[in-house]
């Protein structure tokens, strides 16, 4: 199986001094869904942003390592260019234009002139994936629920015609029933297209439900990787980093305490 994306020894520094990533290695196989797991502050979002390209506002830089996309070195490539190559990010926060309607959110996305003239057809394609959005098409996106915003964000990313879709925190802050619906929609989209997806998640349950391969990020480094069925049974990972569904979350404080003790012993 070929890899669409290969990240080797990636280091990212913010504001010239704060290093967020300490040599991240990961791969995304073509046409597969790959998960990047880890706790808050582990460097997941930074990894995605580094792949999709920073802009001047971020004050961040790739200081070492490289990113290869379809065999081509794209390290440090800036934002509009990565999109033209087919790498599209669904950001964690502020993922829709709240002052635009749902239809406008899809329409505003930059496409070529030819696609621009038949955007209505493109819009309908997105509504096939997310029928719920079709009913909301003239509603301002600021009035949507979190789940609807996530669907719209994925939809508007799809309008950019990605080969590689990067999703930052698919399930964060969403009700479980909505998460299930989005998982189902994503599976459907994945089945119909040859889209490769790199999914950042805090919830192991969501990651395992979608991805075939996973990487676990801790303190700016990949600590563990493997096929999801192997990760699923890796007891240590489940207990220490990811929580095991509802039972695991209940033990969150105990886990945190254990983690701290374990670190102190090292």
């Amino acid at each position: 199986m070929t890899d669409i994306l290969e990240v080797t020894e990636l280091e990212v520094t913010y504001q010239r001094s704060i290093r967020a990533l300490h040599g991240v290695n990961l791969r995304v196989a073509k046409g597969q869904i790959t998960a990047l797991l880890g706790a808050n502050g582990a460097g997941k979002s930074t990894t995605l942003r580094a792949i999709s390209g920073f802009i001047g506002l971020d004050n961040a830089r790739v200081t070492a390592g490289n990113v290869r996309y379809l065999g081509e070195d794209i390290t440090g490539l800036q934002l509009p260019k990565t999109i033209h190559k087919g790498i599209v990010l669904v950001p964690e926060r502020d993922k829709v234009f709240t002052n635009l309607t749902v239809a406008e959110n899809l329409e505003v996305v930059s496409t070529t002139r030819a696609e621009g003239s038949n955007w209505r057809q493109i819009e309908e394609e997105i509504f096939v994936y997310f029928p719920r959005l079709a009913k909301l098409r003239n509603k301002p996106a600021g009035l949507l629920s979190g789940g609807e915003r996530q669907m719209l964000a994925i939809g508007s990313a799809l309008v950019c015609k990605p080969n590689l879709l990067l999703i930052d925190e698919l399930s964060l802050g969403l009700a479980p029933v909505i998460v299930d619906e989005i998982i189902e929609r994503l599976r459907d989209i994945h089945a119909r297209t040859d889209l490769s997806i790199l999914l950042v998640e805090q919830s192991a349950a969501v990651a395992f439900a979608l991805a075939s391969y996973g990487f676990v990020l801790e303190n700016g480094k990949v600590e563990l990787e493997g096929a999801t069925q192997d990760l699923r049974t890796n007891q240590k990972i489940l207990e220490l980093y990811l929580g095991t569904g509802s039972a695991g979350r209940a033990d969150y404080l105990a886990n945190a305490r254990r983690r701290r003790e374990e670190r102190a012993n090292v």
Partner: peptide, 23 residues
């Protein structure tokens, strides 16, 4: 117009506009 919408979108969230390929 699409460029008008892009102007409104960029004003609301410039980073997202860049992430959606708007120049």
């Amino acid at each position: 117009s699409r460029w008008g919408m892009r102007m409104r979108a960029s004003g609301q969230n410039a980073l997202l506009a860049a992430q959606r390929g708007i120049n």
